[in-house]
């Protein structure tokens, strides 16, 4: 496998980074870097780190970092995951900044511990902390419950001062969304599987409306809705497909949430290199973040409406002759 960290890869311009990934040769991993400058979304780092966990460290070839931003990669813990010495030294007296370095989470209790530590690391106000904790909890629990990945989830997050945004990336190298959804729903391709996974009330664990005792099938719908109401980017990549909720512009305060993600302003592709597993990126603009309780009001209406529509679709119809 080969993966290249370019000078820029954020959710708005992530497509070339994803398209340049070469998934061939599962036993080796080659990592290369832009020579001058590397400024990327934590999603890109999470993906590289997740890949590194699937390969014997002796089969990882990591190019020497020449870019000045090598310090950033060191601080984010990338070279620890690659098990290579970067030769970059970080002063212990440097301020911690507002980021969460690459972190591997393999079980439920570690996630709970991580969530407690996360908020101080990002220096978040309570108003913002609630949404961000919610998103990380639901995304990582999805990985732990559905991906069957022995390496669990790899995540990283960072605050970007210029845009006043927290960016979060979570990647796994597990079953991928299509295989998970196909246990209960016939999705022919990854794009359709992603669409179903984003719809409220649809879970790979059952076809029953209402879900199982432990799964409602609403986690990704809630996260997409939080991003939607806050006008943030949200991206999900699995198999050969990627769905990206585009950032809304304009000052219209009216929020319209849809159960079907294809009705949201989005872009999608099904021609990307195959990612075995799932990778999710989200941006949370701290300027635009609504109070969490206000978000829940928006979500409630759409969630209930979606259940009613799914039930109605199953009603028997009268036969007229």
């Amino acid at each position: 496998m080969k993966i290249h960290l370019p000078n820029s890869a954020f959710l708005g311009n992530v497509d070339p980074f994803l398209a340049s990934f070469n998934p061939n040769g599962k036993d080796t991993l080659e990592i290369s870097f832009n020579k001058k400058w590397i400024f990327v979304h934590p999603l890109a780092l999470s993906m590289v780190a997740a890949l590194a966990l699937t390969v014997d460290s002796s089969n990882i070839v990591c190019e020497q970092v020449e870019a000045r931003s090598g310090h950033y990669l060191e601080r984010m813990g990338l070279f620890d995951f690659l098990k290579v010495k970067s030769g970059i030294s970080i002063s212990e007296h440097e301020p911690a900044g507002r980021f969460i370095p690459l972190t591997q989470i393999k079980n439920s209790n570690k996630l709970s511990d991580f969530l407690k530590d996360m908020i101080p690391l990002l220096h978040l106000e309570p108003k913002h902390a609630e949404s961000i904790q919610y998103i990380v909890s639901e995304l990582v629990r999805n990985v732990l419950e559905h991906s069957a990945s022995p390496n669990g989830a790899v995540l990283a997050a960072q605050y970007f001062k210029k845009s006043n945004t927290i960016r979060i990336g979570i990647a796994d190298t597990g079953l991928g969304i299509k295989e998970t959804i196909n246990v209960s729903y016939p999705a022919d391709n990854y794009l359709e599987a992603i669409r179903l996974a984003l719809m409220p009330g649809i879970t790979g664990t059952t076809t029953r409306i209402g879900g199982t005792d432990d799964n409602a099938g609403a986690g990704l719908f809630f996260i997409k809705s939080i991003a939607n109401v806050n006008r943030d980017f949200f991206m999900i990549y699995s198999g050969d497909s990627m769905y990206k909720l585009l950032r809304k512009t304009g000052r219209n305060k009216r929020h319209v949430l849809y159960a079907d993600p294809n009705k949201d302003q989005h872009s999608k592709r099904n021609d990307l290199p195959f990612w075995q597993g799932t990778a999710v990126g989200i941006d949370i603009s701290l300027d635009a973040t609504s109070e969490f309780t206000a978000l829940l009001d928006y979500i409630r209406d759409t969630y209930s409406k979606a259940v009613r529509e799914r039930k109605q679709a199953k009603y028997k119809k009268a036969k007229f002759i």
Binding site: G201, A216, T293, L296, D297, I299, Y303, S304, V307
Partner: peptide
């Protein structure tokens, strides 16, 4: 609190609609 109340109400409404 308000968040907890709202999430409980969402789940309760969902379960009753799903019945």
């Amino acid at each position: 609190n308000e968040t907890v109340k709202k999430l409980i109400n969402i789940v309760i409404e969902y379960m009753q609609l799903s019945a």
